[in-house]
Write a protein that binds this DNA or RNA. Structure first.
Lengths: 215, 215
DNA sequence: TCCCTGAATGAATGATCATTCATTTGTTCT
DNA sequence: AGAACAAATGAATGATCATTCATTCAGGGA
């Protein structure tokens, strides 16, 4: 307990007092992105200031401009970070399992409602950016590309799954869009009222949708 | 055509040059809310300034503070305006039709994807506020209450519908939550990439979900 | 017609904030 | 060790913005 510390508080080291240490570029950038996620989740996109971010990271005023040039570029990288993270876990499901399509679908539903994904901070950041897509072409582009990638992979998966079961009467594109929309909506529900829509219930709703399709 | 004018441009009158006219409180407030919707849709919640709003409304600097006290209060009233407007149309469906439950469900799906609701400006505003719910308790409260109301009415409707068909094996709460989440997700898709997800497709996906339930 | 009331105006104010850059400090190479 | 380089700092700057309030003006009652 004595050695525990909050994620981004300045390290309470035994040695001198708060040394400043040069870090590889990539590591500093990651640290700043993480701090940004925390701040945006807590204060929202509109109210998050550079001072909030650098304080959260335990660093100095000019550090963001040094590593990202401008605040806006940091925000864009933060959005990319969040989408890339989701995509990595998503792709892993396809690679890991060379098992049956049905197993993959099951794994995706579990992934979408795993603690890794259903995390109020990350959800808040994701929807904060989505809330600005109409106004900011760059956010729109990143989010749309992300959604598109996911949908294409889901479409192929559903196609393979339904061909196997001899069902040709349904449009896989529609089903993939439906599943994506449903999960987005369920995440939003969880963000909005975590009491009412628990993760378990959301997973059940998503699973019901999927099993309604494949039976 | 000669007399047409954009909604909020300063009235191009034949008389003098831009008279200033006192308006009933409620009318001015509505005018400012409408201007806010336009601005938030165009520039986003974060970047919308008081000057943007008053310019859009064709009024002077201090007008918002006169009618809403602060910018934040104007934003809250704008959110309420958007949710109330949806709710009014929604309630009307229940009142208008004393017809079969199935007809009501059909009307709701049509309503949710009618031009009145699927309007990129209003969708942008709705999601702009949703994007800030984690950070702003007042937005969270308004949005959560709205979603809750809708869900309760939908739950009752589905219950009545399924009782009639003798189906007792399904949880109506789950179905209502699912439908709400699905529509939210579909709206988001439309906002994000209007090309890919057309309104017609979205309606079809929503209707597929519903008919999967009631059969 | 002439007040009187309150709606509307907009210049001025002060607070907030992103960005800059001269200086400090850590790291690496010889 | 110490020179050379790069990373990090943070006080200073200038821009942006919400809010204030003294003044202007429209409309209705006497």
């Amino acid at each position: 307990m004595a050695t525990s510390e909050t994620a981004n508080s300045p390290p309470a080291r035994a040695t001198p007092a708060r040394t400043r240490r040069a870090l590889p570029r990539a590591e500093r950038r990651n640290q700043l992105i993480r701090a940004t996620i925390k701040c945006v989740a807590k204060k929202g996109l509109a109210a998050t200031t550079m001072a909030d971010i650098t304080t959260e990271a335990g660093l100095s005023t000019g550090i963001v401009n040094l590593h990202f040039k401008t605040k806006e570029l940091l925000l864009v990288e933060t959005l990319r970070f969040v989408t890339d993270e989701y995509k990595q876990g998503f792709d892993k499901i396809f690679v890991d399992k060379n098992s049956a399509d049905l197993e993959i679908v099951r794994a995706i539903v579990n992934y979408d409602f795993s603690p890794q994904i259903v995390n109020r901070n990350k959800l808040a950041v994701w929807f904060a950016f989505l809330g600005e897509v109409k106004a900011r072409p760059i956010y729109q582009k990143i989010c749309a590309r992300h959604d598109n990638d996911i949908n294409q992979q889901l479409g192929a998966l559903f196609a393979s799954l339904l061909k196997r079961s001899g069902n040709h009467s349904v449009d896989v594109e529609l089903i993939a869009s439906g599943y994506s929309a449903l999960t987005d909506g369920l995440w939003l529900d969880i963000l909005l009222s975590p009491r009412r829509t628990s993760t378990a219930i959301a997973r059940e709703v998503a699973w019901q949708y999927v099993s309604g399709i494949i039976n």
